[in-house]
């Protein structure tokens, strides 16, 4: 679904955000991307959503080489992604319904179809009945669920979430993560940027750890949560080395 090959990103100021990043997210896989602030996690999401272009390297999303996409094709690329943000990025002068409907309206769907899909998406995030409210009247968790409903309403194959639980308490966070797992269960690939280590430790999904713009750890999916963090740590180092060699072989 997502394939990075030696991706580098250097900002005009000279800041090196990503250095030789190489990994692959399989179709239907769900993974967490962790790292300290400034490690390059957000930059990676921006590259995938084409808010930024890599300085060098290849980035292939859903079989398409993003380097070959022209500026006027960028909107169509973004329509195939479901983007979820920490600050929700909702339009506060529009109702929940209108917010969730926006991707479908942009794509030009029929009114009845839009209504049907929006209500289905709101049902999925358990906000049915609140479609005529304005986002400002909702709690943080509910607003985030509106954001998720908007991201999934046009049935993207890939969900990208940037700190989706950043402002939420643990219970709400777990609920949100549960939603992502639901979508993943029906085949949607999910990449979640987070530093909520407590939460993801209890989840079986793959974890990619970025440090100073480099991939420092790749913890594969476990069928049971790791009992203690130290155990996970050893596993990381091994697997990242193994993965790195695998990638190189695969490319040549």
């Amino acid at each position: 679904m997502i394939r990075l090959i030696n991706v580098c990103k250097r900002y005009p100021g000279g800041h090196q955000a990503l250095t030789n990043l190489t990994f692959e997210l399989e179709d239907g896989e769900m993974a967490f991307l962790t790292g300290h602030s400034g490690a390059g996690k957000s930059t990676l999401l921006k590259l995938i959503a084409l808010m930024e272009r890599p300085t060098s390297g290849q980035l292939i999303v859903n079989g398409k080489n993003l380097g070959k996409l022209k500026t006027h094709q960028v909107p169509y690329h973004r329509r195939n992604l479901g983007l979820i943000f920490q600050n929700h990025q909702l339009l506060y002068d529009r109702t929940v319904f209108d917010n969730v409907a926006l991707p479908l309206v942009i794509a030009g769907h029929r009114h009845q179809e839009v209504r049907r899909r929006v209500l289905a998406a709101l049902d999925k995030v358990q906000l049915l009945g609140k479609e005529h409210l304005y986002p400002i009247t909702l709690s943080g968790g509910e607003q985030q669920r509106v954001g998720i409903a908007r991201a999934v309403v046009n049935r993207p194959k890939l969900l990208l979430a940037d700190e989706p639980t950043g402002n939420l308490d643990p219970d709400l966070s777990a609920e949100i993560m549960g939603l992502f797992q639901d979508f993943n269960r029906v085949g949607v690939s999910v990449l979640i940027v987070t530093h909520d280590y407590d939460l993801i430790r209890s989840m079986p999904n793959r974890i990619l750890h970025v440090e100073h713009g480099k991939l420092e750890g790749d913890y594969p999916r476990r069928d049971r949560p790791a009992a203690n963090p130290a155990e996970g740590q050893t596993q990381v180092t091994q697997s990242s080395e193994r993965d790195a060699t695998d990638e190189e072989d695969g490319d040549e």
Binding site: G28, G108, H109, R155, D182, R185, V188
Partner: peptide, 27 residues
Amino acid sequence: MSNTPRHAPPPRATSRLQRPSLLYRYA
């Protein structure tokens, strides 16, 4: 939804939304 077998083709991702014609969308 939750009882969908994991090995089954994922329905969400494959069922694409049918969009109306270009002219209709434009209008």
